[in-house]
């Protein structure tokens, strides 16, 4: 499995370089406009998107027809993609967080707790996005899958405005800040459940997939 993760990391290294340049640009923004937490959010999402890029590269090069001739089971091939997604999302957060905290020593505009809760929420969002997108990409391919992914990301954002409006109209109130914070900290762990379920679905799809 490590070999397959390594293959994906080598394949996306060019993309990673571009992502690093973009993040350096964001770092500058963060430094001058005090947007540290936004940088970490971007880094986590960039990490998650690289997994999708790795699927695109596999499809373009017809890798799977070769990958399936290797002494690796289909389940392990899929497991390597999920391991890669955890590695990239968590890795991006782990690399960027200390840097942003270092900036904050100068700006002192947010607390470490705030950053941490935001990080938890964005990691959870990234896990959820991957939980949906990986099986979709496997089932429909990267071309159709991307459209679906677009819908997965933007439909909730689009409807969030309506939801908040309806919540006010029907006197539904958000829980206390303390509860929200607790939920935020737990979110990535809760989202590991859909990620695990997603793995089972993906393994099932891939077990009968032909190339």
């Amino acid at each position: 499995m490590i070999a397959l993760i390594l293959k994906d990391l080598y394949a996306i290294k060019g993309q990673m370089k571009s992502a690093v340049y973009l993040l350096l640009f964001f770092m500058l923004l963060a430094f001058f406009f005090d947007m540290g937490p936004v940088v970490v959010m971007c880094a986590v999402l960039f990490g998650a998107l690289q997994v999708i890029t790795s699927f695109t590269f596999d499809e373009m090069s017809k890798w799977d027809k070769y990958g399936l001739t290797l002494p690796v089971s289909r389940r392990k091939i899929i497991a390597s993609k999920y391991a890669l997604s955890l590695l990239l999302t968590m890795g991006s957060a782990l690399i960027l967080t200390p840097l942003v905290l270092l900036f904050n020593l100068y700006f002192k505009s947010f607390s470490a707790n705030e950053l941490f809760s935001m990080l938890c929420v964005i990691s959870a969002a990234a896990f959820l996005m991957l939980s949906v997108s990986i099986p979709v990409l496997l089932k429909f391919g990267t071309q159709k899958g991307r459209l679906f992914l677009f819908a997965v990301v933007f439909i909730p954002v689009f409807f969030s405005g309506f939801i908040s409006e309806y919540m006010e109209r029907f006197s539904i109130y958000l829980p206390s800040l303390q509860t929200i914070k607790l939920l935020a900290y737990g979110a990535p762990f809760f989202m590991l459940i859909p990620l695990a379920l997603s793995y089972l679905v993906s393994a099932k799809i891939y077990s009968s997939k032909e190339f």
Binding site: I2, A3, L6, Y10, A11, F57, D58, S61, V72
Partner: peptide
């Protein structure tokens, strides 16, 4: 059928872990 960005050296690095 390998991703085009890979080099022979990189291919060797992960293939030797597979066999």
């Amino acid at each position: 059928p390998f991703p085009e960005m890979l080099t022979g050296k990189e291919i060797e690095k992960f293939m030797h872990k597979l066999y």
